[in-house]
Amino acid sequence: MGHTAQVSANVWIAAVSLAAWLWLLLCQGFFWRTDIRLPPRREPAVWPPVCVVVPARDEAAVLPSSLPSLLAQEYPGPAEIFLVDDGSSDGTGALARELADAHGGLPLTVASPGEPPAGWTGKLWAVRHGIALARAREPGYLLLTDADIAHAPDSLRELVAAAHGGGFDVVSQMARLRVESLWERLVVPAFVYFFAQLYPFRRIGAKGTRTAAAAGGCVLLRADAAERARIPDAIRHAVIDDVALARAVKGGGGRIWLGLAERVDSVRPYPRLHDLWRMVSRSAYAQLRHNPVVLLGTVIGLALVYLVPPVALVVGLVCGDTAAWVLGALAWLVMAGTYLPMLRHYRQPPWLAPLLPFTASLYLLMTVDSAVQHYRGRGAAWKGRTYARPDTVTDEQPL
């Protein structure tokens, strides 16, 4: 009787996992499709001025591969770059000036805002300073881009044409991340896959939906929309600033769009598991709003959706439970099938698809580690700064 009950439980759990995957396949905004590219472009009669704001902290290692691509932008209207050196100790600001002198191209201004006040993340404090400098030029658009992002020569032109053609206040592209080391191949495509699962791109760009997200490496923002949404002041303490920015703009009635990029690339390497672990764990618990109940639900959900299928397959085969292993195999097959388009986007071999449960288990551990660090009082740590937990942040406004 006990054996029958155990087998029955295995079957039911596997059936729930398969049902979850069928729902994700058909009802979660077709998140697994990777054909979301820039919307139809329409060139404006007069190209508006654009200011590019680049927050940079200790980025000397990647600037030679990224900054020249911004300097070389082929934009028909006025454009200028503001690189904000956020307290770097590696000569980031001086190197940026040297690269501008060597490569020419768009005008570059290098500035430094000093240390951020309480309640501000360093990146958003730098963005605030860059936007303040840019407003003197009265830009129509602001391009917020990270210091490790390399752009194709027509990137700025295409972004502005897409925003103009679709009437978008935000046009953001998910830069193609580097996938060269073994760990990058295992973890990076899954990172984008999980992000799209959480924020289906089709829902973000659709009218009347509440789903909002952006990719911080490449965000074209209409200047008047930034003022209406009080960007970045309204989100000054956000660790996941790109999603917070998109929510602020969309919550104020703005239209936003997010999709995958083909010619916007991150040049930052994450060669070791430790590097990728830090990238994910520093903000994973913030994504869950520092809520232990949400954390528990996330852990259970990840286990049910990603770990149950291979476990049910193995247990079913060992115990001779045909229903359990068939259901587990079907769920695993659907999972791998939805992952294949993202692997193709990253030009990775299809045999990585069945390894998604292993990668998901890593993300589960990273999320738990993020919560542990939070409750140890370390908050989110990045490049030598540790940010206070949300309940310790004041609402003081900078002068």
Rank of each mutant, 00 (worst) to 15 (best):
T4D: 13
A9T: 11
N10Q: 14
I13L: 15
V16Y: 07
S17Q: 04
S17I: 13
L18V: 08
W21C: 07
G29T: 01
F31D: 05
P40D: 14
V46E: 14
P55D: 08
A61K: 13
P64L: 07
S69H: 04
I81Q: 00
V84D: 02
D85A: 00
S88C: 07
T92A: 05
T92W: 01
G93M: 03
L95D: 08
G104V: 08
L106I: 03
P117Q: 08
A118E: 15
W125C: 09
A132P: 01
L133Y: 00
R137G: 06
R137A: 12
G140V: 08
H151P: 05
D154M: 11
R157K: 01
L159R: 04
V160I: 01
A161S: 09
A162H: 08
G166S: 07
F168V: 05
E180I: 12
W183A: 15
E184T: 12
L186F: 15
A206T: 13
T211M: 11
G216E: 03
G216C: 11
A226V: 02
A226I: 04
A229Q: 01
R230G: 07
I235V: 14
I235S: 02
H237D: 13
H237C: 06
V239S: 04
A246H: 02
V249Y: 08
G253W: 09
G259C: 05
E262Q: 04
R268A: 13
R272E: 15
R272W: 11
L273Y: 09
H274W: 10
L276N: 13
W277C: 05
M279K: 11
V280C: 09
A284H: 03
Q287W: 14
L288S: 05
N291E: 14
V293D: 02
G297A: 05
L304K: 03
V314H: 02
V326P: 04
G328M: 05
L330Q: 10
A331N: 03
L333Y: 06
Y339P: 03
R344S: 05
Y346F: 15
Q348V: 07
P350D: 13
W351N: 05
P354S: 09
L355G: 12
L355A: 14
L356Q: 00
P357I: 05
V368L: 02
V368I: 14
S370P: 07
A371F: 05
V372E: 00
V372Q: 10
R376I: 06
R378E: 12
A380T: 12
A381N: 06
K383F: 12
Y387C: 01
D391I: 12
D395G: 15
P398E: 06
